[in-house]
Design a protein around this nucleic acid. Structure first.
Lengths: 224, 224
DNA sequence: GCAGATTATGACAGCTGCTGACATTCGGCA
DNA sequence: TGCCGAATGTCAGCAGCTGTCATAATCTGC
């Protein structure tokens, strides 16, 4: 995240995670995983924070020092995936048309995370399972939507930076980010509602289908 | 809401509101108004349900019989406006292109509600004030976004019905409704963030500006 | 290695949102 | 008037979340 310092010596300083830092990451991961399992088995509402905390052998107070509320621990996995998408978007070639860059980034993000599944800790299947829980849990859906709109602000900035525009004067980044976000959400909804092919590839297919319908949907008349 | 029964005699039965019904509507309105005033003066989080209830001289338990949670009373005014929009959309001529029907409906809804302001109980200015509170209160924003997505499902159905399509097979209604919803939200955000001309007309202007940028935003390259 | 400064954690206590259960009162209707 | 059902009040209780303080673990400089 932080820009690499140009000085060689002090640059190495932030490379040592330290025991304290490692332990923190460890309990955080444990909390996410325990919460995830409990949510899947008994549902979000019927899982108390105390259960999650004691499953990791931690006090409830400590849980709330890691996550501001119960929603946050559920959305943590999704948040990682979204961060990765932003990273993909930043790396797209500058000549690419904006809409196409967005489409390519989201497809690439799902694919990469899907491929990393075997080697990594299977965070992708977690994210997909979570998506189902989110859609059917009103409180979670609300929290997720808010997160998504915050992510949209980031997309606006990246788009504006790409094209060298001032997003407060030119509405195109704002509008495109909004359209993109809504398209994604519609795709997620389709994927969870219909019995779509599971896994990242199924999701990619659904997203592509929705993108393909963007032009036709905005066309003047539908009866042709 | 309920379709008018074709039989003349029983039709008259549902025309008498009755004292009980009137009182219910009365306390409901009082709760909404009291809550609104308290939210505006001290903020949403710093207002307890007990305060709202005792301001109307009602038990806390009764409050929760009218509203499922604290969010709902805050979003009640917005909900009315959204219902009116759906009504407007239903009444648009069938020949109109879908996107244009949506645009005309939302503009008409804001205008009508704005004009009714003087005669009515000023629910429009309430809705606009609420919009500001919603945007700056995370919990409310989340709840509002969820409501909006539910409203989007209605829009999908109306659009599909207009064109005689099956929304589970043709993605165009879903995509268009999603795009429309996100466009509206972007407009709301602009309106609350920037110092836009206040009042319904200012909102209408912002919405129109965003609609006008839809084509350019989706165009291939932005650098002309 | 060892003191002392930082920092994470635990252990309370407490408020608020929200719900179930039961008693009570009030409006509708014969 | 008098009965029935709906609306309300009261009470008890759980769960999410926060402030506060003491304790234990890490990190830092020596």
């Amino acid at each position: 995240m932080a820009a690499r310092t140009p000085h060689p010596a002090p640059a190495a300083a932030d490379r040592a995670p330290g025991l304290r830092e490692r332990k923190k990451q460890q309990t955080r991961d444990a909390l996410v995983q325990a919460a995830h399992m409990l949510f899947l088995s008994q549902g979000f509402a019927r899982t108390t924070v105390d259960e999650i905390a004691s499953a990791v052998d931690v006090s409830q107070r400590t849980f709330f020092r890691y996550f501001a509320n119960k929603d946050e621990v559920a959305l943590a996995v999704m948040a990682d995936a979204e961060d990765y998408f932003i990273e993909c978007l930043r790396l797209r070639p500058a000549e690419e048309p904006p809409l196409q860059a967005l489409r390519a980034s989201i497809v690439q993000a799902w694919r990469d995370l899907g491929n990393a599944q075997a080697g990594g800790h299977g965070s992708i299947s977690s994210a997909l399972e979570l998506l189902r829980i989110i859609e059917e849990t009103p409180a979670l859906l609300a929290a997720h939507l808010r997160r998504v709109t915050e992510q949209e602000r980031l997309v606006v900035q990246v788009l504006a930076a790409r094209e060298g525009l001032d997003p407060t004067r030119d509405l195109r980044p704002v509008v495109l980010a909004a359209v993109f976000g809504s398209l994604l959400r519609a795709a997620h909804l389709s994927w969870t509602a219909e019995q779509e092919p599971a896994g990242p590839e199924g999701m990619v297919a659904v997203i592509e289908r929705h993108f393909d319908q963007l032009g036709p949907a905005l066309a003047g008349h539908w009866r042709a």
